[in-house]
């Protein structure tokens, strides 16, 4: 399993970066952002900062797992107060901390990410009977996107069916 890339940014401006120079150059030419390359983000948002709202917004739009931390003595969810709690998606994990808890929260977040990835490996065999019309469509679509039919279906289920099911997200949060 590849090591996950986790980018952290703190309110004092520190951050991490371990992307090779050639990869950065290619990314710059393609017009993408380095945030597109991140598997997950950890944001310490106790101090108000314009970049924090931006990073959170970007993470939300990309549906990236994000750990949002704020000091429970000095902040009240920071920029997240601008979103109703029902609008905070399941992949944004919000934690208030005091003292040494930060390390534990970050460790758990990263461990869970690795676990999620192992759990999310497509290892369950599933037989599905489909109509010839569906088969023709999948053939065409897979060829168009240069991917296998199974990958196409997996992506649809993950991004559009699960990813957009707000009721299911609420269910997971309560779980």
């Amino acid at each position: 399993m590849d090591m996950k890339k986790v980018f952290y940014v703190t309110s004092d401006g520190k951050n991490s970066l371990d992307i090779p120079a050639d990869e950065l150059e290619a990314l710059n030419e393609s017009g993408g952002s380095m945030l597109d390359k991140m598997d997950a983000l950890v944001i310490e948002g106790s101090t108000p900062d314009a970049d924090i709202g931006y990073l959170l917004a970007y993470a939300m739009s990309l549906r990236r797992p994000t750990l949002y931390l704020y000091d429970k003595d000095i902040s009240n969810k920071g920029v997240l107060k601008f979103l109703g709690s029902r609008q905070i998606p399941a992949h944004i994990h919000v934690k208030s901390y005091s003292g040494e808890q930060v390390k534990d929260f970050v460790d758990k977040f990263i461990t869970d990410l690795q676990g999620d990835e192992a759990e999310e490996l497509p290892s369950i065999k599933f037989t599905l009977r489909i109509t010839p019309q569906m088969e023709r469509y999948l053939q065409w679509k897979a060829k168009k996107f240069k991917m296998t039919k199974a990958d196409f279906l997996r992506e649809k289920i993950s991004e559009e069916i699960i990813g957009q099911d707000e009721e299911y997200k609420r269910y997971l949060k309560k779980k």
Binding site: V9, G31, G32, S33, M34, L35, Y54
Partner: peptide, 23 residues
């Protein structure tokens, strides 16, 4: 002239900023 997400271009002096981990 290239097909990329950067559909517009300019001389370096006219690029006012770039996006990496923020703007």
């Amino acid at each position: 002239p290239n097909i990329s997400f950067n559909m517009f271009d300019a001389d370096e002096r006219d690029v006012m900023g770039r996006v990496d981990f923020g703007i």
